[in-house]
Amino acid sequence: MTEGSISVAASDSREQPATPRLQLRGIKKSFGGVQALKNVDFEVHAGEVVGLVGDNGAGKSTLIKTMSGAYIPDEGEILIDGQPVTITSPQDSTRLGIETVYQDLALCDNLDVVANLWLGREAYRDIIPGLLRVLDETEMEQRTSEVLKTLDVRIPSMRSPVATLSGGQRQCIAVAKTILRQPKVVLLDEPTAALGVAQTRQVLNLIRRLREQGLAVVVISHNLHDVFDVADRVIVMRLGQRAATFEIHNTTPERVVAAITGAEYGDVPKTAEGL
């Protein structure tokens, strides 16, 4: 029903309303007196790209942070493959296969691509078992090469410091970093912000690759053009609620904008007939 990009054969073999890879039900979250999320449902399927859009303060970030474990919801439940799970910290979220790529990318500019990809989970080789172990650069470089090939990320050299790469390449490295952990769900926060045209295309291609790998992908973006380019579904947040959901095939950017601004009932003439 929602998996527009999956082939017909694939959706046939599955029961029609497939279990979402990641599902949130009735999520509520308040900060002091402000209700940031009011009973929000959310779902993303395997092999699907969901665009999460909304104005500033609509609750997108709060929702993403709930999934990534940065915030603990006041109410509501989170399910992965239909199983209820508890996420109380970013570590929980990572353990459950949810990876988040934040806008600031969290790369070490002084380290090379291989070192960044494996940071904190390096491959080792025992020199004296139990006593002395050293980094296994060969293994890491080989796996890096494989991952970058799979994702079709092109960089001048795997041993060049990340600082020498372009913004698009850096974004790709940040995403590739999460892929090494073989996640189920990847959350991308504004992946194309501040990128040029060619670099944006590079990142959008990468998102398509993630979908081809069968990952569930959530993209937060202000750029509707990019969302329409890559997403299968768009979920619109407004004033802490899920205001609307669109299949990308059956909608237009104008209708999505109308939903974001809360103008869908009449303000925008074009969408008046689309109710």
Partner: peptide, 18 residues
């Protein structure tokens, strides 16, 4: 490796579990 990482970007190092 982690020493260089902390020097380069402490926040990234922390998020990487260092």
């Amino acid at each position: 490796r982690h020493l260089y990482a902390v020097g380069g970007n402490p926040e990234a190092a922390r998020r990487a579990g260092i």
